[in-house]
Design a protein around this nucleic acid. Structure first.
Lengths: 239, 239
DNA sequence: TGTTTTAGTGTATGAATAACACTAATATCA
DNA sequence: TGATATTAGTGTTATTCATACACTAAAACA
């Protein structure tokens, strides 16, 4: 469209690719980063696990389609959602030409509505380091890219809060960072940075456990306006 | 598609969106960052300038489509090309549903084959700070996003070399950084960082000018293997 | 010859980072 | 009831890094 090309008022005259939206859904379950996959029932890739997704409708935007898919799979609304990349190799689907716009979603761990995994279900959460590879289509590639994006983005964004309940301790937050980044962080340095950043708000609540009770914090939603919605854990090591 | 949805072997039964690939083409012309735009000849947005693009064919991947567009507009092959984002709002094209996969391209300044701008041409280079706004469709938004991506990516990538000839001086390289970032950089610090990074290779060549002759360098293509193809000018200030 | 112009180097200061030792408050167990 | 384990949280220091800016170098030009 757009430019020097003829305008196809009658779209049906042209050969069009199909467009799907696939959503890589992450959550923290039992303190471990998981991803939601669905098992295919028919050819091609029958029996293999795949990233949930579906065709886009003409009356919804890409993001609306992604939210719809997400809600159909998890029953969850109002989550963090971000476009990842568009995959469009000619033969990624053996049936016909399919272009897939991939999204990443982060679902809070405390949300009850998530359907629990059941051994016999065709929809299941998998820990990100125990994936049922190979996945269907080019979904190994999509998932790997989603993980790498998640990691690099975590380093400068408050994205981790999407995975936490309203109230949490600083060490819980640190634990999420460790889960996503896949490495240990220094406790002292983490405390110092997160406090200096001013993105947390202290609450009067404590939680008791085995050792010393811990203070609970909440994410500061009344950001001071100009300040950015960004907490940089450290300078990003990129690919 | 993929999953629980029926498989449309007969694609024509379904209402499908059209998919285009739009390419934001940057180049350095007269030491200033420019972008290539085409002027529309018909409704909608007749007379307005737009980012070049066109429909995707069923037998080419997204990137192949982007390269084809690029070559059609500039006659240039083998350039830096990167997927930017996919724009899919329902009414971004008033005619029918069009999803656009946007790419960024960087074209070297010394490439002769680029057609020169001509006042009467419907294809023209514009300095990025003198754009003929408003552009057609949602192209203002796409272009703004492309610029912001270019800037933030420049800060950790050797992307600037895409805009330079084989041999260049360090101060020329600094000038490109300044053009893209839109700010002045410190000469001494730039020299120090670029040299420490080891991405440049000294050549015996010098170039004479008004003052002291300058040494010419080339980009090091025989990277030491493990080392990354990344030069981080400084830590990235992101949106 | 000395002034202008562009190229390139050196260095002092303060800020950010990383490593790690320390103190604090609770439960548990002998 | 006191010692020990356990989790929470703070302080300190050495080093690396960024910034600003002053300096030297080599040519042309007047």
């Amino acid at each position: 469209m757009q430019d020097e090309h003829p305008v196809p008022y009658d779209v049906s005259k042209y050969q069009l690719p199909a467009v799907t939206v696939d959503v890589v859904i992450f959550s923290l379950i039992n303190r471990t980063l998981h991803v939601l996959l669905v098992q295919r029932k028919r050819w091609p890739f029958e029996g293999r696990w795949a990233i949930p997704g579906g065709f886009i409708r003409l009356d919804e935007s890409l993001e609306e389609a992604a939210r719809r898919e997400l809600e159909e799979e998890t029953g969850v609304r109002d989550v963090y959602l971000e476009q990842l990349y568009t995959f469009g190799d000619v033969h990624r689907d053996p049936r016909h030409r399919v272009i897939s716009v991939a999204y990443i979603a982060l679902v809070r761990a405390d949300v009850q509505t998530i359907r629990v995994s059941d051994e016999n279900s065709d929809v299941r959460w998998f820990p990100v380091d125990q994936l049922p590879t190979p996945l269907a289509f080019d979904h190994d590639q999509i998932l790997a890219y989603a993980l790498s994006r998640l990691r690099s983005k975590l380093e400068y964004t408050t994205l981790a809060f999407q995975l936490l309940p309203e109230l949490f301790s600083i060490l819980e937050l640190k634990h999420i960072y460790e889960q996503i980044l896949g490495e240990k962080l220094d406790k002292g340095n983490f405390y110092r940075k997160i406090k200096e950043s001013g993105i947390l708000e202290e609450t009067p609540y404590m939680r008791e456990g085995r050792g010393r009770p811990t203070r609970l914090w909440r994410f500061r939603r009344d950001r001071p306006g100009d300040k950015q919605f960004v907490f940089r854990w450290r300078e990003d090591r990129r690919e």
